[in-house]
Simulated scan of single mutants.
Amino acid sequence: MIDIQRSPSSKLENTNFDNLLFGKVFTDHMMECDYIDGEWQKPVIKPYGPLSLDPSARVFHYGQAVFEGMKAYKDKDDRIWLFRPDENFKRINRSGKRMAIPEFPKEYFFEGLEELLKLDKDWIKKGFGNSLYIRPFVIATEAGVSASAANEYKFMIICSPAQAYYSGEVRVKFSEKFSRAADGGVGFAKAAGNYGAQFYPTDLANEEGFQQIIWTDANTHEYLEEAGTMNIFFRIGDKLVTAPISDRILDGVTRKSVITLAEEYNIDLEVRRVSVQEIVEAAEKGELKEMFGSGTATVINPIVGFGHKGKKFDLPKLEDSYAKFFKDKLMKIQYNEAEDKFGWRYEVK
């Protein structure tokens, strides 16, 4: 059993659900579990609030931190659903292993997550686009600045009500100089430092009118890999193309789902290396019909244009786009409005 400490009051009545900024508002409770003396202790669900950590906690000095991103959805009958949570559980432990963080027990993860969602169920609003963003994460808490893996950690889950992640049109820049990850590194892991290292080059791209960067391979910058918060798909003619996962590219849950749906609906899809030159030439010839990103926060996000070496390219606006098709299929499964023949939905009872 999980120790549950209920909040004496709720922030719900003071929350404007019609004007939410992504990741700024948090629910009334959080889950916390400490790793001490070689084992994970009993998880606790407690009122959401600040942490007290020693200034020498190793997360601050050596960046031992990994996280996940998930969502909970509420259908028309007030039932609560998760989307492929097993994948997130496996990935946070895979990320943790690369950062020398001990594996978190599956029963603690799912019991803690379900109890937290049931306690804060009123924060999950019905309707397409409404969801509860779930952020599991682990940090190294042991005090001391010796350069070695910590012996103490804290696993937590916090939740934030969400609407659509991006608003407005999204344009991307193909990276020509900076790299997100290299062979043998931690690009496949959701390590906190992966994201921190992206902020400066993304700020530079923002100044040029782009919202995101599509990262290229660190060796040659000739092959497109993924964006900062999304895996990327390209539609050349009627063929969909995406880069293969590797130790540089995150194994996205939404990406996997798009590939499965493409196979199910006989959409021509290739998983292979995608060169910058191929996409630029396809755009110049009018053969590049679409680009879109996939990810937990955004689901499917159409990209209206891209830039490379000072040139800017706009993509055509399609009525029957693949982006729209996949987003509709995925969201109907997530919100329990369509058959789930793949077994992706997970009900919180």
Results as ranks from 00 to 15, higher is better:
73 Y>C: 01
65 A>G: 04
84 R>A: 05
96 G>A: 07
243 A>H: 14
121 K>Y: 05
242 T>L: 08
286 G>L: 14
309 K>F: 04
253 V>A: 07
83 F>K: 01
82 L>I: 08
82 L>G: 00
100 A>W: 02
286 G>S: 02
44 V>R: 15
29 H>Y: 12
343 G>Q: 11
167 S>N: 14
247 D>G: 00
22 F>H: 08
62 Y>C: 10
71 K>R: 11
50 P>K: 15
334 Q>A: 09
101 I>A: 09
324 K>C: 03
310 G>S: 10
202 T>V: 14
239 K>T: 14
297 A>W: 03
105 P>G: 04
290 E>Y: 09
279 I>N: 02
252 G>T: 06
139 I>S: 06
73 Y>S: 03
12 L>T: 03
51 L>V: 08
121 K>N: 09
143 A>K: 12
269 L>C: 11
342 F>S: 03
100 A>N: 12
321 S>F: 08
169 E>F: 04
311 K>P: 00
28 D>V: 11
313 F>G: 02
87 E>L: 13
10 S>R: 08
180 R>Q: 04
187 G>R: 10
18 D>Q: 13
139 I>P: 05
223 Y>R: 11
231 N>R: 01
250 L>S: 00
60 F>G: 02
205 A>S: 09
242 T>W: 07
319 E>W: 01
313 F>L: 09
231 N>V: 01
313 F>K: 05
163 Q>N: 15
122 D>K: 10
173 K>S: 13
251 D>E: 15
118 K>T: 05
149 A>T: 04
81 W>A: 00
